[in-house]
């Protein structure tokens, strides 16, 4: 088993095989997992917001879907990953609280997921699988050995995608 590397909120990290990247308690945030099938270099970003464009204070690249994905790909390439071999899995984007009037901010989870997919597509990175939406939190672990993404919840079981 590889070393377990924690990624915090609005944070990102990459690892060589056999490291395991994890992020705990994803809510409306999205965990973006990138995996190079040839070198087994993997990366994980825990993003909070869809776009850095609409926000003045945007110095932290890991906070936004658009900047995090680009930075994560760059970091992985620096470590020796091949861009055309990188695939992705995504999890999170839940709506934690229910309100009858679904304002933009309450739908932030869904917006994060949409933005993540658009930006992955723009960077020609296929999405192999996803576990998004719902109204519950997720802890995820990305195994660089197999590219398996393990998803743990409270009350909604454990699964692999």
């Amino acid at each position: 088993m590889g070393e377990l590397i924690k990624v915090g909120m609005a944070d990102m990290n990459c690892t060589y095989h056999p490291g395991i990247l994890t992020t705990l308690g994803l809510g409306s945030c999205v965990g973006i997992c990138l995996f190079d099938t040839s070198t087994k270099i993997s990366g994980l970003a825990h993003i909070m917001l869809p776009s850095s464009m609409q926000i003045k204070n945007n110095s932290n690249a890991a906070k936004f879907a658009d900047t995090a994905i680009v930075k994560l790909i760059q970091d992985m390439i620096k470590m020796g990953a091949h861009k055309n071999k990188i695939v992705s899995k995504i999890a999170g984007g839940a709506q934690m609280f229910n309100f009858s009037d679904t304002s933009d901010i309450m739908r932030i989870g869904a917006r994060n997921v949409i933005a993540t997919k658009e930006i992955l597509k723009a960077n020609s990175i296929p999405i192999l699988s996803e576990d998004t939406g719902g109204n519950y939190g997720r802890t995820i672990e990305l195994y660089s050995e197999s590219g398996i993404l393990l998803i743990k919840t409270i009350g909604c079981g454990i699964k692999q995608i």
Partner: peptide
């Protein structure tokens, strides 16, 4: 639910500014 997941809501709200 998990604290992290619940906290993502206020953190995202703060995160906008």
């Amino acid at each position: 639910d998990m604290a992290g997941a619940i906290l993502s809501v206020p953190v995202i709200l703060f995160g906008q500014v």
